[in-house]
Protein backbone atom coordinates (compact mmCIF):
# COMPACT_ATOMS: atom_id res chain seq x y z
CA UNK A 1 0.00 0.00 0.00
CA UNK A 2 1.20 3.47 -0.79
CA UNK A 3 1.07 6.27 1.78
CA UNK A 4 -0.37 9.71 1.00
CA UNK A 5 2.02 12.48 2.03
CA UNK A 6 2.01 16.29 2.02
CA UNK A 7 4.53 19.15 2.25
CA UNK A 8 4.28 18.87 6.05
CA UNK A 9 5.31 15.25 6.55
CA UNK A 10 7.67 14.91 3.55
CA UNK A 11 10.79 15.43 5.66
CA UNK A 12 9.86 12.77 8.21
CA UNK A 13 8.41 10.18 5.87
CA UNK A 14 10.75 10.49 2.89
CA UNK A 15 14.02 12.21 3.81
CA UNK A 16 14.44 10.44 7.15
CA UNK A 17 13.24 7.05 5.91
CA UNK A 18 15.45 4.03 6.56
CA UNK A 19 14.07 2.37 3.41
CA UNK A 20 14.39 3.78 -0.11
CA UNK A 21 11.26 5.76 -0.99
CA UNK A 22 9.44 6.12 -4.31
CA UNK A 23 7.31 9.28 -4.43
CA UNK A 24 4.58 9.55 -7.07
CA UNK A 25 3.73 13.22 -7.69
CA UNK A 26 0.23 13.23 -9.17
CA UNK A 27 -3.14 14.99 -9.36
CA UNK A 28 -6.67 13.64 -9.68
CA UNK A 29 -7.34 15.50 -12.96
CA UNK A 30 -4.21 14.17 -14.66
CA UNK A 31 -5.00 11.33 -17.08
CA UNK A 32 -1.52 9.82 -17.33
CA UNK A 33 -1.33 9.90 -13.50
CA UNK A 34 -4.49 7.81 -13.37
CA UNK A 35 -2.90 5.46 -15.88
CA UNK A 36 0.20 4.84 -13.80
CA UNK A 37 -1.60 4.88 -10.41
CA UNK A 38 -2.50 1.17 -10.34
CA UNK A 39 1.04 0.25 -11.45
CA UNK A 40 2.50 2.23 -8.55
CA UNK A 41 0.17 0.38 -6.16
CA UNK A 42 1.22 -3.00 -7.59
CA UNK A 43 4.89 -2.09 -7.11
CA UNK A 44 4.13 -0.97 -3.55
CA UNK A 45 2.88 -4.47 -2.71
CA UNK A 46 5.55 -6.30 -4.70
CA UNK A 47 8.38 -4.38 -2.99
CA UNK A 48 6.74 -4.23 0.45
CA UNK A 49 9.40 -4.27 3.19
CA UNK A 50 12.15 -3.19 0.79
CA UNK A 51 10.69 0.05 -0.56
CA UNK A 52 8.33 2.68 0.83
CA UNK A 53 5.91 4.04 -1.77
CA UNK A 54 4.34 7.48 -1.25
CA UNK A 55 1.93 9.58 -3.26
CA UNK A 56 1.89 13.38 -3.16
CA UNK A 57 -1.09 15.22 -4.63
CA UNK A 58 0.41 18.36 -6.21
CA UNK A 59 -2.93 20.16 -5.79
CA UNK A 60 -2.61 19.88 -2.03
CA UNK A 61 1.15 20.34 -1.73
CA UNK A 62 3.18 22.74 -3.84
CA UNK A 63 6.38 23.34 -1.82
CA UNK A 64 7.97 19.92 -2.27
CA UNK A 65 7.15 19.71 -6.02
CA UNK A 66 8.68 23.18 -6.48
CA UNK A 67 11.75 22.17 -4.44
CA UNK A 68 12.41 19.30 -6.87
CA UNK A 69 11.70 21.40 -9.98
CA UNK A 70 8.69 19.34 -11.01
CA UNK A 71 7.02 20.79 -14.10
CA UNK A 72 5.09 17.76 -15.28
CA UNK A 73 3.11 14.92 -13.76
CA UNK A 74 3.20 12.10 -13.18
CA UNK A 75 6.80 12.41 -11.96
CA UNK A 76 8.19 9.59 -9.86
CA UNK A 77 11.28 10.28 -7.77
CA UNK A 78 13.27 7.61 -5.99
CA UNK A 79 14.97 8.70 -2.75
CA UNK A 80 17.65 6.80 -0.87
CA UNK A 81 19.10 8.09 2.41
CA UNK A 82 17.33 11.39 1.77
CA UNK A 83 18.92 11.90 -1.64
CA UNK A 84 17.38 11.74 -5.11
CA UNK A 85 18.82 8.72 -6.90
CA UNK A 86 16.62 8.57 -9.99
CA UNK A 87 13.45 9.96 -11.50
CA UNK A 88 10.99 9.33 -14.32
CA UNK A 89 8.32 11.55 -15.83
CA UNK A 90 5.27 10.31 -17.71
CA UNK A 91 3.10 7.22 -17.69
CA UNK A 92 5.88 4.71 -18.36
CA UNK A 93 5.53 0.92 -18.47
CA UNK A 94 5.65 -1.08 -15.25
CA UNK A 95 8.86 -2.74 -16.38
CA UNK A 96 10.57 0.66 -16.75
CA UNK A 97 9.63 1.67 -13.22
CA UNK A 98 10.61 -1.73 -11.84
CA UNK A 99 14.01 -1.44 -13.53
CA UNK A 100 14.58 1.95 -11.90
CA UNK A 101 13.72 0.48 -8.49
CA UNK A 102 15.86 -2.65 -8.98
CA UNK A 103 18.87 -0.53 -9.90
CA UNK A 104 18.59 1.49 -6.72
CA UNK A 105 17.79 -1.23 -4.19
Amino acid sequence: MSVAITDTDFENVVIKSALPVLVDFWAPWCGPCRGIGPIVEELASEYAGRLQVCKMNVDESSKVPAMFGIRAIPTLILFKDGEVVDQITGAVAKSTLAAMIEKAL
Partner: peptide
Protein backbone atom coordinates in the same frame (compact mmCIF):
# COMPACT_ATOMS: atom_id res chain seq x y z
CA UNK B 1 13.77 18.61 -21.17
CA UNK B 2 10.89 16.13 -21.19
CA UNK B 3 9.09 16.71 -17.89
CA UNK B 4 11.23 19.80 -17.26
CA UNK B 5 9.55 22.05 -19.80
CA UNK B 6 8.47 19.77 -22.63
CA UNK B 7 4.90 18.51 -22.26
CA UNK B 8 2.24 16.87 -24.39
CA UNK B 9 -0.58 17.46 -21.86
CA UNK B 10 -1.58 21.03 -21.03
CA UNK B 11 -4.28 19.94 -18.61
CA UNK B 12 -1.75 17.86 -16.66
CA UNK B 13 1.10 20.30 -16.52
CA UNK B 14 -0.37 23.76 -17.20
CA UNK B 15 -0.65 24.60 -13.51
CA UNK B 16 3.12 24.43 -13.02
CA UNK B 17 3.46 27.40 -15.39
Amino acid sequence: FSGRGVSYCAVCDGNFY
